[in-house]
Nucleic acid binder design. Sequence first.
DNA 1: ATCCAGGAACTGT
DNA 2: ACAGTTCATGGA
Length: 305
Amino acid sequence: MHSIDYKSYIEIFPPKEFNFEECLVFLGRSDQEVLHQIRGEAVYKLLKVNGELVLCKIGYVNNAIKVEFPISIPSSYARKMTGEYIWEWFDLSQNLGEFYRIANNDEILQSLAHKYFGLRIIGIPDLFEALVWAIIGQQINLTFAYTLKKRFIEQFGEFLIFEGQKFWLFPSFEKIAHLNVEDLKKLQFTTRKAEYIIDIAKSMAKGELTKELLVQKKDFQQIHSSLLQFRGIGAWTADYVIMKCLQYPSAFPISDVGLHNALKNQLGLERKPTIEEIKEYAANWEGWQAYATFYLWRSLYDNEL
DNA sequence: ATCCAGGAACTGT
DNA sequence: ACAGTTCATGGA
């Protein structure tokens, strides 16, 4: 009989310029979020790796991200994939040194970079989840967007109960591909959004739209134009997904209303800036537009508190 | 009540 | 290419 010779937890050593607390603040921005839960200094999240459910408790101990498994210790493969997921989720591949050098010489970003130092773009590593969330968020307020997302997950997702609380997985595209528009309209999705989401689920089920296919494209422009071919994905959604799922720090959802409002606040403007004005502000942000956008979004959350 | 919301497709020019 | 219109309903 063998003894278990691996540790019952994973340690992830983040790069410089990482602040777990700041990331936790972002993760806690909506009390309607059901895909993770914050308890004390840790975030709990359920993952599924090759059919294996993995409940993670993610904390920060001795300058390392510590991932524990409150229910059961996953297989070594699942532990490896869990580590990779968390690495992407917190965008740990970026070297933020250059972003902070830019920010320090930028009128708009200087204070934000100081305030939220160590915050990384909290990603959405799952392509289907990123696309659905972007489509849900089109042209409605964030509060209602979270309501729709919660209904969608609780209607079609899987869950696991631990210590009396439910931990949800985002619904699979395989399941959503089989729905009718009416199934989503019941949850108060508009006809359009229901069509977009179901069509995208079908494209993914057929293997026509996958994260792998997008990653293989040689540059940003190719990824962008291939995403635009799918109904329901416009420029904003493509940029949002390239930023949050494919982790391009140069992605820039320039038409985003949240970005416009944040700029208005930061600059003390009477009105929202025009696209042309934003291009002028963003001239300094080359290569780091996604981080500039994300820090500006983060500033909106402070206004609510 | 009124305006607008972390847009996109469609239509007409 | 570009501008205007429609979708559609909740939140503040």
